[in-house]
Design a protein around this nucleic acid. Structure first.
Length: 293
DNA sequence: GCCCAGGTGAAGC
DNA sequence: GCTTCACATGGG
């Protein structure tokens, strides 16, 4: 499928596109030349950024770019968010190290499915699995001439009709029945993802956690990355290690305790703060690895 | 071979 | 309540 090209340039400040797309919140972006290729809202997109601009290309004629503005959260004033973070040393180090890191606003079903696939997997492997699922079961989307085929993340209705074996063949292992169960719950209307939008966070979290294979962490990822809930604070192994080392040194603190701490300590934009801490923790490790070699 | 990866649910205490 | 363990698969 080929189509014409539409381009648009946005003025931006403090928008680090690469860090944002690589920070483990979205798994469908692929580096292409100086930019990135992905699919947003069933549209093929190429993104490229400079210090003050973000240029987008997409297939077909586009007059209204609001879908992309929303996805990239281009109208968000990042400074006013970061200003609400606590002033303690670890948080401020993370802010300095991750300048321009943003939260995307992703499709709820794609986010839920992706994070079901994320448990005890490295980010590169999650990308691999998500890519396989898209290529095998996703709908093709129009691409500009000369580009390789692109696929949207498959709808819940599509995955719901598959067998567990077909999903396992995408290398997702024990997560296959979890994904299938979630797809069927959404396809059959037992879980209404649209309804979560207007629901208090705690109620939405309960709804998501009712799915087999979805607990507190995955629920919080969905609430944060798809719904923008700032009172969602996913605590994964990286955040756990970071919180223990930086805020509770030489003390035994369990997960429950860390969650309670996070819920009050990081302020009204705790979810955003979490992404800064997560990315900072991971970049520290890769920096140490580079220093060692 | 070993340990670990954006976890979760079940079983054990 | 809290802690421990199995669960697929691949990278370092």
């Amino acid at each position: 499928m080929c189509a014409d090209l539409s381009t648009k340039t946005f003025e931006v400040t403090d928008y680090d596109l690469s860090t944002t797309l690589e920070s483990g919140q979205a798994f469908g972006w692929r580096k292409h030349g100086q930019g990135w290729v992905g699919v947003v809202d069933r549209r093929w997109v190429f993104l490229e950024s400079s210090a003050t601009t973000l240029r987008a290309e997409t297939a077909g004629e586009v007059r209204d770019w609001s879908w992309l503005i929303h996805y990239l959260q281009l109208e968000l004033d990042l400074g006013s968010i970061v200003a609400t973070f606590p002033a303690d040393p670890p948080m401020q180090q993370a802010v300095r190290a991750c300048r321009g890191l943003r939260l995307l606003r992703q499709d709820p079903w794609e986010t839920l499915a992706s994070f079901i696939l994320s448990s005890t997997k490295q980010i590169t492997q999650i990308q691999q699995i998500v890519r396989l699922v898209c290529e095998r079961f996703g709908a093709g989307v129009p691409t500009p001439p000369g580009h390789t085929p692109a696929y949207a993340f498959p709808a819940a209705e599509v995955l719901a009709d598959l067998g567990e074996k077909q999903l396992r063949d995408c290398k997702m292992g024990f997560r296959a029945p979890y994904l299938l169960g979630a797809a069927r719950a959404v396809a059959q209307g037992r879980l209404d993802l649209n309804a979560l939008e207007s629901m208090p966070t705690e109620a939405a979290r309960t709804q998501l956690s009712a799915l087999h294979g979805v607990g507190r962490k995955i629920s919080d990822c969905v609430l944060l990355f798809a719904y923008g809930r700032q009172d969602a604070f996913p605590v994964d192994v990286w955040i756990m290690k970071m919180l223990r080392e930086q805020y509770f040194p030489r003390r035994k603190v369990n997960l429950r305790r860390l969650q309670r701490f996070a819920a009050t300590h990081f302020g009204p934009n705790a979810g955003y703060a979490q992404q800064y801490l997560f990315h900072y923790a991971r970049s520290q490790i890769s920096q140490r690895a580079r220093d060692a070699s």
